[in-house]
Design a protein around this nucleic acid. Structure first.
Length: 321
DNA sequence: GGATTAATAAACATGT
DNA sequence: TACATGTTTATTAATC
């Protein structure tokens, strides 16, 4: 079966994207194709496509958006949240690198091949500058530290480790970091404990009164780049801000205009058949599950669809028609 | 066009 | 003395 949805490039505004396995919270949430959910994936077993990422690029993809990866990882793991009493939970930062191992889908249809130029356009390179301001970078670095305070040297290190751009950037950005620390009211210098002092300089922490502001800036920056860039570049579900203390937001839906998505797509021949049409395809680090335009599934159903091999097989069979 | 903000560069002081 | 750290000033660009 020639599937019209395959004409939809992964960067198009908005297939519904699901990670496998899904481990959402038990609260009833609904996901519709009016929302766009992007979740990061580990490399999956899949025939390598010509547009496969180089390790460096893959690392860049991962590193250039630590928020989304960490946030999702944290949320999906469903672990106890040390800072859950904090309205602005950032504890996910401590769990970077602990992403869930992903199981490959049992059957998928081949990807629509992207033009190399398109892939290059979609993917961030290690040399692309992160969208975050130095204040945000410093904030993230400090928040990622166990003690919520860091010497400037460790702030450098965190930035370099998380944003490959700064590995090769000239040294001026360190000056900017120091400049920002000194100038910004958001950060406060703490004298090291002389008895335990090792290394030069002071420790820097976030002023509690400015923390909400920093979070908001971070959230807006993240949201902006999520909405205005392609999904591969800024996958970006963000669970920094929780509506209450009881439960983390497990995903963020990005609203989009239905007509923007579907105007160039042929009508799904199965859309009236009662089947739920599932299109699995892989693009770089992401697997996409494209749902028909008017589909509305609760997450539990989606999870079942994802985890159930038979369902996946059926989905694959549909695509083979 | 002016105000604000952020990035960048540079000079300088201080501490290790 | 060298280097890292911290402060301050100035300039530029982008944004509102």
């Amino acid at each position: 079966m020639e599937n019209s949805s395959h004409a939809l490039p992964p960067s198009s505004p908005c297939p519904t994207i699901l990670r496998e396995p899904l481990q959402f919270s038990s609260s009833p949430q609904h996901i519709s194709s009016n929302s766009c959910v992007s979740l990061p994936l580990s490399p999956i077993s899949f025939p390598p496509s010509p547009t496969s990422l180089s390790p460096a690029t893959a690392e860049s993809v991962h590193s250039s958006s630590p928020l989304s990866h960490c946030a999702v990882s944290h949320c999906l793991e469903g672990q106890s949240i040390p800072d859950q009493d904090d309205l602005t939970c950032l504890s996910w930062l401590h769990q970077r690198g602990d992403l869930l191992p992903l199981q490959p889908l049992t059957k998928m249809t081949p990807l629509p091949q992207q033009e190399p130029s398109m892939a290059a356009q979609l993917l961030p390179s290690a040399s692309s500058k992160p969208p975050y301001s130095f204040s945000s970078l410093i904030f993230m670095a400090i928040e990622d530290s166990p003690e919520k305070r860091l010497p400037v040297k460790d702030i450098y290190e965190w930035i370099v480790n998380n944003f490959p751009y700064y590995r090769t950037a000239t040294g001026g950005w360190r000056n900017s970091v120091r400049h920002n620390l000194s100038l910004s009211k958001s950060f406060r210098r703490i004298q090291r404990d002389k008895s335990q002092s090792v290394g030069k300089g002071s420790l820097w922490c976030v002023c509690p009164e400015y923390r909400p502001v920093l979070l908001e800036v971070l959230r807006k920056t993240h949201s902006y780049h999520s909405n205005n860039s392609n999904l591969l570049h800024k996958p970006a579900p963000l669970c920094l801000l929780t509506p209450d203390h009881e439960e983390l937001v497990t995903m963020e839906s990005v609203e989009y205009q239905q007509e923007e998505v579907c105007e160039d797509m042929e009508k799904d021949p199965l859309s009236d058949s009662g089947y739920i049409e599932l299109h699995y395809y892989e693009s770089q680090q992401y697997q996409y599950l494209v749902l028909p335009g008017d589909t509305e599934l609760d997450l539990e159903t989606v999870e079942i669809l994802q985890l159930d091999a038979e369902a996946q097989e059926a989905a694959g069979s549909l695509l083979d028609l």
